[in-house]
Design a protein around this nucleic acid. Structure first.
Lengths: 135, 135
DNA sequence: AAAATTAATGCAACTTAGTTGCATTTACAA
DNA sequence: TTGTAAATGCAACTAAGTTGCATTAATTTT
């Protein structure tokens, strides 16, 4: 288990088993997870309302961040170096239009500033074919 | 009326009044329009199913493109230089977190390629405070 | 111009992601 | 061990978006 996982658990208020279950899922891969997928996979272990609420708490704590894909579905992915007060990890995502998987990319994409407007966050979604589906 | 409006009408199969009504709304400003907003504003003139279907046809014809905001709502904005077969206008958008307005930006944001993956489209959403709300 | 054909529209019912209120249970501190 | 606050389950709800089917409107054909 990585160091970040320990931080995860420290950040949130109560270290319930269900919270740990969700955190472990995020630790497994560097992929985003859709809420629909999570509620399905966890349907025997917890109520869907609980899934929504734990994800919400994890986001408030800076453990994960959320975004919506082009189908309007909500996804969550773990943050790197964020906290409850400082959400700075705004990495781009890559969604494979074949299998639907969303990867988190570590690259930095510089965005020019715009006159008369204040930019607070940047959401970048690249779409195409992933490593597995390309071959 | 701009030239593009004439092209708009030529692209789709039938130039019904309702189609023209929608196209005119997109011509008025360089802003994206949410489907929710459109169905509300047009509720006395046409059924919401019709709004959805006209928008769908306009997108198929390359007249507009759609995307989802971070609340999962669908938005449409007019394309520049697209057709039914060639969708190349992938300009970034700017959403004001105060008033919710989404502007289309004409800037080009270069995105580096990624190894072992094929990128087909790029969706960029900048979020912050717009010209009107900043003052 | 009338008939035939095809596309567009309205309406109602439906699907599904996400939310809310409230009662109950669990975790932690005193 | 008891009290308190947070976490959970459940059921009902909201709202965006979709579907099937009957009807209407626009084009084409005769």
């Amino acid at each position: 288990m990585q160091l970040s996982c320990i931080n995860f658990i420290d950040m949130i208020r109560r270290k319930t088993k269900k919270v740990e279950t969700l955190i472990n899922l995020f630790e497994q891969k560097n992929e985003a997870l859709s809420v629909v997928d999570l509620t399905n996979r966890l349907s025997t272990q917890m109520n869907k309302t609980t899934v929504y609420r734990i994800l919400d708490r994890l986001e408030q704590s800076g453990v994960v961040h959320s975004f919506n894909d082009s189908n309007g579905l909500r996804w969550y992915a773990k943050c790197n170096g964020c906290s409850a007060t400082k959400h700075t990890d705004t990495h781009p995502h890559f969604q494979c239009t074949d299998c639907g998987t969303i990867e988190c990319l570590s690259m930095e994409i510089p965005v020019p500033s715009i006159s008369n407007r204040q930019i607070n966050s940047v959401e970048i979604m690249l779409k195409g074919t992933c490593e597995r589906c390309i071959s």
